[in-house]
Design a protein around this nucleic acid. Structure first.
Lengths: 195, 195
DNA sequence: TCAGGGTCTGACCGATCGGTCAGGCATGCT
DNA sequence: AGCATGCCTGACCGATCGGTCAGACCCTGA
């Protein structure tokens, strides 16, 4: 039976998310998390095999959405790829700001962990799509600046509601992305979202 | 007499810059730096009072240029401030990519150190200038995304020569920045600044 | 020749890290 | 009552961190 009288597992997860977002993964010790929960460090390691497993469970939802976006991107080219990448990433970044903040600056080392095996390749494809699959330096640079900047900005703008942040970022991306040969189709009035 | 037969001081500084840029400040131990130089950890601490002093000396030139940019910005408003901020920061980011990479993700903690006392305020003013001193959320978000994105991009694009990276970034910023009421004057052949 | 200062090092320190382990405690089932 | 199980803990471990210190090794000037 699952006796959820006190969801210590979830409390640890929430505390870790809060601490990681402020002081980073490496900068947060298991002691810190335990102190915030109000339990012992051994309890944290009772619910999670190790620190890395804690991080992996924390990031799992965001990684799943990123994988879905990657799937949507396969086969798309040019302006269509740009638009899907823009909408998908902005939405992902806004929804998972805290998770993204966790990775702040520790991407290179963290990506070496098996839990994040293919994230680098996925983000490379995402960047490529946002550049309209163009190999012009201007397009590639713009795509990287936007992806990195949005990640950082979302981590910082914790006080801005999603509904305000998302359209502002999307407008910025559409304005900043280097246009490709195929013109970007005018977005219709309806704002239907496909899964 | 300064006997520079073997400039260990400089070698340590260079090695620290290399390691910090890859594994970050906190992720690099004094042992790592000493190993790269080929000396003992005690030697590193003979030339530098502590790890923080090593970082401070490493970042001093970049901080100096940032301060100069901050001075240039005082008094400017609107499109003029945007243009000076754009040019100044792009140039700074391109020149000091490695130094900027050091700070990757460790900004919040590092800024607490006395060596970086006023960096936060300066970067806030820089962001404000790039937003054309507008308080509209779109302008503020765009400014933050661009500053953060450029920092991150410069740290990653180590293989692109300065002369190629700088104009690409500047073009992107001019395209992406939210225009303010006073229209940005078309950049003429001469490059003087008007209010 | 020798004193002295600049340079460098191995050994060591306390603190903290992630992680292990045996056992205490409460509860539910038989 | 007795036992098993889930949850939790203090004590402890080896490794590594930043930093200290006494002393060895030059080189130079007197």
């Amino acid at each position: 039976m699952v006796r959820a009288v006190s969801d210590t597992h979830g409390e640890i997860l929430a505390a870790a998310a809060r601490r990681f977002a402020v002081t980073g993964y490496r900068g947060t010790s298991l002691q810190d998390i335990a102190r915030e929960v109000g339990c012992s460090k051994a309890t944290v390691l009772y619910h999670f095999a190790n620190k890395e497993a804690l991080l992996a469970e924390l990031m799992a939802p965001a990684i799943g959405v990123l994988r879905d976006l990657d799937d949507q991107l396969t086969g798309l080219t040019g302006a269509a790829a740009q638009e899907v990448a823009a909408q998908g990433f902005v939405d992902l970044a806004v929804r998972f700001r805290r998770e993204i903040a966790v990775l702040r600056g520790e991407f290179p080392e963290l990506l070496c962990q098996p839990a994040f095996a293919h994230i680098q390749q996925i983000s490379d494809r995402l960047r490529d799509a946002l550049a309209g699959h163009s190999d012009r330096p201007g397009a590639r640079i713009a795509a990287l600046v936007l992806l990195a900047g949005i990640s950082e900005a979302c981590a910082e703008f914790v006080d801005i509601p999603d509904d305000e942040l998302r359209p502002a970022l999307l407008t910025l991306v559409r304005r900043a992305v280097e246009p490709v040969a195929v013109p970007l189709p005018q977005p219709p009035t309806t704002e239907d979202k496909d899964s």
